[in-house]
Design a binder for these strands. Structure first.
Lengths: 229, 229
DNA sequence: TTGCTGAAGTTAACGGTGTTCACCGGGGCG
DNA sequence: CGCCCCGGTGAACACCGTTAACTTCAGCAA
């Protein structure tokens, strides 16, 4: 058990991830390569295997950090009306994604590369996704502590849907009532769609500035959470 | 001008794309490589350069085909109520995406690889995206020929938003009235979000079966197109 | 028939990638 | 002192895109 300084190892790990992050910022996810990282650090690529079992593991680890960073960037504890806070969280999410497109692509883009890492990827990042969703779930719960929840949409009260919620239940138990979960799923899906379609440029054939659409859809979603249709 | 059989060349082009498609189906977008294609065809990789200027061009070409195929898979000419037809188109889109995740990732996933091909990619596929959106625009126009359009959401009547619609206008002119465009943008964004989040597995931490959520959001969106909030 | 031309494919090579293996230097501990 | 093992190197293998030079061969013209 030669501990040396245990901080030395973790410092190198942090340096590796910082270098990977820099490559991600400048060249997108595909620019992250072990050899490029090692080159920038004045090392050789095999040395990184002392710290990570492979490139995939490094990327997954980095992505986990991104979820935490994004959670901090989005979370906005305050004593405002939770509805206002929720809207502001949506805007902060969009702002972070637009400012960090490569990071967004890593965390929320298309995985599907090799079927091999696909499962491992998802399993290890389940925690990140769940903890990220928690921030929104908390705020929506705060909303429904003030405003009455709207009537549940059809299909979302079925026992089949309740059974489909098993993964969520494993992560969060019964901490949130069903209307909160339902509102979260709808709101998060819309927010994801708006931001992903903008960051990935899939609406560039139609519109140059997505912000008006975003604001319209955001306010429509927020107001829909309290009794609207 | 030794034409030989001009069909021979186009047959080889088709064979190359078919092989690429097969690799895409079995191993995702990252599995498409010139060497693998050539290997499966009993050729060598440089031979493919007689037909495509490079891997990127091949992938872009293939993606263009996917847009056309998807348009055919989604389009449902019929004399039903256009609202019913629109809902069925949404379901067909989801079904196609779930059955062809790799293809969906190629057409609607995160680009962002190298900044180089990014622009070229988008420019060449603008046409595909626009022609694909056309199918939905047509149907929504048919909807509003029968049902009255809902009140325009805030922000989407601003002159700023009208100016932002320039790319759309370049592609489609003034063929569709503003409420049609507005309803399309909202509906398409929601549909994209629902399907992408499911295909990419970003909701697997919460839910095993997205279908109830999809159906709830779909019907909410469809009904919202005719006077609902 | 001969000869040219151009399309289609090959081999070899360069630089890039992840990953594995054998090796080695040096610091902490028994 | 001697051992061990952590962190690093170098070489190698297999894969990738891409380029250049070369061959092969069908088809047309003189």
């Amino acid at each position: 058990m030669t501990t040396t300084t245990p901080s030395r190892r973790s410092a190198t790990v942090a340096a590796i991830k910082a270098t990977a992050r820099r490559l991600l910022r400048s060249g997108g996810p595909a620019a992250i390569s072990l050899r490029a990282i090692a080159r920038e650090m004045g090392m050789t690529a095999p040395a990184i295997y002392r710290y990570f079992p492979g490139l995939d593991a490094l990327v997954v680890d980095l992505t986990g950090d991104l979820f935490a960073e994004l959670r901090d960037a989005v979370d906005r504890p305050g004593d405002d009306d939770p509805l206002v806070r929720l809207a502001e969280m949506g805007r902060r999410f969009r702002r972070w994604a637009l400012a960090n497109p490569g990071e967004f692509a890593l965390a929320f883009g298309s995985p599907v590369p090799g079927v091999t890492q696909f499962d491992r990827h998802c399993l290890e990042l389940t925690d990140g996704g769940a903890r990220f969703g928690e921030v929104f779930l908390d705020t929506i719960a705060a909303v429904y502590a003030v405003h009455p929840p709207p009537p549940m949409p059809a299909n979302l009260g079925d026992p089949g849907f309740l059974a489909a919620l098993q993964p969520y239940r494993d992560a969060h138990g019964d901490r949130f009532p069903l209307p909160v979960v339902s509102a979260f799923l709808i709101g998060w899906t819309r927010l994801y769609g708006l931001v992903a379609i903008e960051v990935f440029g899939h609406l560039r054939w139609a519109v140059t500035d997505v912000e008006p659409l975003f604001e319209a859809e955001l306010s429509r979603t927020i107001t829909g959470m309290t009794g609207g249709a």
